[in-house]
Write a protein that binds this DNA or RNA. Structure first.
Length: 203
DNA sequence: GAGTGTCG
DNA sequence: TGCA
């Protein structure tokens, strides 16, 4: 485990291959119930390069007119998000150091050419709880900065099975994904990367 | 002015 | 990595 200068924790190889495979199977089932959709930027409506879905009581969504928010239903199907799987509740219990369970698990699917610009996770009302991030599939280059957008940034690779905790000082750190490295994992048959982020939304 | 954006 |  490495503690970065800004307080962000990186746990390389936290999940073994079996646990990763099991999670992928779980996510596959979630995607059947709650299909991946293309989120859009507020205002411009510009599509993001990642595809998204969620599980848990709440899900993070965005579209052109209503912007970033959490809601209890899938924006396309209108159905409630699938239940939060037990294995994710267990991981949160082990690593999050927070009394309450996570309410949202955002599932981001990155194709090999997808990116995520530098941003803060600040649509929650519970900054005392960390954001717990799980990487599955191809390696990515992850960039982390500080509390202000202009603070200097640094980058490091995240591999399949790695976990990152954005907590404490690092909870509101700017972060993003610069690039995906194709063919760096055999976990996902069709390439790409899945990132799961567990969040507490309500205080 | 800001950006879960893109470009060089 | 920083700037546009």
């Amino acid at each position: 485990m490495a503690t970065l200068p800004n307080g962000i924790k990186h746990l390389p190889g936290y999940l073994d291959r079996a646990a990763q495979k099991h999670l992928v199977d779980t996510i596959r089932q979630i995607v059947v119930e709650a299909p991946l959709y293309v989120p859009a930027m507020p205002g411009t409506g510009k599509p993001m390069s990642v595809r998204m879905t969620n599980c848990g009581p709440l899900g993070w969504v965005t579209d052109k007119t209503r912007g970033y928010r959490y809601q209890s239903t899938h924006p396309v199907t209108g159905k409630a998000w699938p239940e939060m799987p037990q294995e994710l509740l267990d991981l949160w219990g082990k690593l999050a150091d927070h009394v309450n369970p996570p309410e949202a698990c955002l599932v981001n699917f990155y194709s090999d050419d997808a990116k995520m610009g530098l941003h803060q996770d600040k649509d929650e009302n519970a900054f005392d709880a960390p954001v717990l991030s799980i990487s599955l599939g191809n390696t990515c280059l992850f960039r982390v900065g500080g509390f202000d957008r202009k603070a200097p940034t640094g980058s490091f690779k995240l591999s399949s099975g790695d976990i990152v905790l954005l907590g404490g000082e690092g909870r509101l750190a700017f972060h993003g994904v610069d690039r995906i490295y194709p063919d760096t994992s055999t976990l996902l048959k069709n390439g790409g990367r899945i990132n799961l982020t567990l969040r507490r939304v309500n205080p």
